[in-house]
Amino acid sequence: MNDIIVKSITRLVIPFLQLYGIYIILHGHISPGGGFSGGALIGSSLILYTLVFGVDRAQKKFSHRVSEIAESGGILLYLFVGALGIALTGNFLSNKAAGFPLGELGSLLSGGIIPVLMIGIGIKVASTMITLFHVLIQEESQ
């Protein structure tokens, strides 16, 4: 696509989309939304980038190695937080029982492990969405 209007609008819109996605992930525990929706939003912003600027440029920005690390990393973060629960004399994925600080109700830094897990899910979902799209649209000959 070589449309200057589309390109400039995309350039303009994508930061806002991503910012909104990050906002949704970070505020997942105090407002509607969370890791899934925020991650999907970030993923779709990257899909939009791919649609407008092509796969090659998108893959330079978000290479295969990065996505591999992000995919494993998202779950490993989740597992690590869960295992901390065991280490801190609780059960797997314990929150209050393992002694994580819950913070003040309704503030951004509250909920113990919940925001951390939300971030892990968000990373995972975003990277999954974009990788799946790249793999699906890439032609055999490349």
Partner: peptide
Amino acid sequence: DVALTEAAIGAGVTSILFIA
């Protein structure tokens, strides 16, 4: 929450993948 997720994933990503 579910509406937001469905709008992003169901209407957005799934359709794009179908079209691809």
